[in-house]
Computed example of a mutant assay.
Amino acid sequence: MKYEWLDEYCLSKKGVEKDFKVEWDATRYLIGGKMFALQGGDKNNKAITTLKCEPQFGKFLREQHQHIVAGYYMNKEHWNSVYLDGDVPDDVLKEMIDMSYESVLNSLSKKKQKEIIGA
């Protein structure tokens, strides 16, 4: 895999938990019990990571990068999948991870957010 730092980067965020969903054969990264990143494979077993993005930004990314596609097996408007053997720049993938994390964190109750970020 080209993005060896991906697991460590996701886990470096506050309150992140990681598990393996056997039925999906995929690793999930969760915040407050909600998934913000998924690392697994497509129907051809090509390694992908799937992240939540603001719909317009996700569409823009798919137009700019051939290795970013609408979320595999997810809501195509809000989720995007990145092929991990592709050429998406590290900074773009990190921005997508950050956006996904923030989006899911902000969807949690204010109480839960405070518990997670410690504010």
Rank of each mutant, 00 (worst) to 15 (best):
M1D: 02
M1R: 00
K2P: 03
K2G: 01
K2H: 04
L6T: 10
L11F: 13
L11M: 15
S12A: 14
K13Y: 11
K13M: 15
K13F: 15
K14R: 09
G15P: 06
V16Q: 05
V16R: 02
V16W: 09
E17K: 10
D19K: 06
K21S: 11
V22Q: 13
E23S: 14
W24M: 03
T27N: 04
T27L: 02
T27A: 05
Y29A: 00
Y29G: 00
I31T: 07
M35L: 13
M35E: 03
F36W: 08
L38S: 08
L38H: 07
Q39L: 08
G40R: 07
D42S: 03
K43W: 00
N44M: 01
N44A: 04
N45T: 01
K46H: 12
I48F: 06
I48C: 00
T49Q: 02
T49P: 02
L51D: 04
E54S: 09
Q56F: 04
F57R: 11
G58W: 01
G58E: 01
R62M: 13
E63Q: 13
Q64C: 01
H65D: 08
H65W: 11
Q66K: 14
I68P: 00
I68Q: 01
V69T: 12
V69R: 07
A70F: 13
G71R: 02
G71S: 02
Y72S: 00
Y73F: 15
N75H: 07
N75A: 05
K76W: 11
W79V: 04
W79A: 00
S81N: 01
S81M: 03
D85P: 07
G86Q: 05
G86S: 07
D90P: 01
D91K: 09
D91C: 00
L93D: 02
E95D: 15
E95F: 14
M96V: 15
D98C: 08
V104T: 13
V104P: 06
N106G: 15
S107A: 07
S107Q: 10
L108S: 05
Q113L: 09
Q113Y: 12
K114P: 00
K114N: 13
E115G: 12
I116Y: 06
G118E: 13
A119N: 08
A119V: 15
